[in-house]
Amino acid sequence: MTGDFSDWPRRAVITDEAAGTWLVDLEAQRFLAPFLRRDCTVARAARELGVKANSLLYRVERLVSLGLLRVVREERRQGKAVKVYRASADEFFVPFAATGAAALEDLVRALSAPLGHVLVSNSVAVMRARDLDIGVRVFRDAAGETGRVRTHLAFPDGSRVDTRGDEWPPLMDTWHGGLRLSRAQGKAFQRELEDLLEKYARISVDEPGELRLLAHLALTPLVTPPPLHDSSREAS
Rank of each mutant, 00 (worst) to 15 (best):
M1L: 13
T2M: 10
G3S: 07
S6K: 11
D7T: 12
W8D: 10
A12F: 06
V13C: 07
D16W: 05
A18P: 03
G20D: 12
G20C: 10
L23V: 07
L23Q: 12
E27M: 01
A28M: 08
R30D: 08
F35N: 06
C40H: 04
V42N: 13
R47V: 06
E48F: 01
V51A: 04
S55D: 05
S55R: 13
Y58I: 11
V60Q: 08
E61I: 00
R62T: 10
V64I: 03
V64D: 07
L69C: 07
V71A: 04
V72T: 15
R76T: 03
R77L: 04
K80Y: 04
V84C: 04
R86K: 14
A89Y: 01
F92A: 06
F92S: 10
F93Y: 06
P95E: 05
P95F: 04
F96H: 08
G100R: 15
G100P: 09
G100N: 13
A101W: 02
A102I: 00
A103L: 02
D106I: 03
D106K: 14
D106V: 08
V108C: 09
A110T: 03
L111G: 01
A113R: 15
A113P: 02
L115E: 05
L119R: 15
L119H: 14
A125P: 02
D131T: 02
D133W: 01
I134K: 08
V136Q: 12
V136K: 06
R137Q: 10
V138K: 13
V138D: 09
F139M: 02
A143K: 04
E145L: 03
G147I: 00
R148C: 13
R148G: 11
R148P: 04
V149F: 00
L153N: 14
L153T: 14
A154C: 14
A154T: 04
P156F: 06
S159Y: 03
S159R: 14
D162H: 02
G165N: 10
D166S: 14
L171C: 05
M172Y: 13
M172N: 15
D173C: 14
T174V: 15
W175T: 14
G177M: 14
G178Q: 15
G178M: 14
R180T: 13
Q185P: 01
G186I: 06
Q190D: 09
E192K: 00
L193T: 08
L193D: 05
E194I: 01
D195G: 02
L196V: 00
L197W: 08
L197K: 12
E198K: 12
Y200T: 11
A201Q: 11
V205E: 14
D206I: 10
E207Q: 12
E207W: 06
E207H: 07
E210M: 01
L211E: 11
T220V: 11
P221L: 06
L222I: 06
P226A: 05
P227D: 00
H229G: 11
S231Y: 04
S232V: 01
S232P: 01
S232G: 00
E234H: 04
E234I: 01
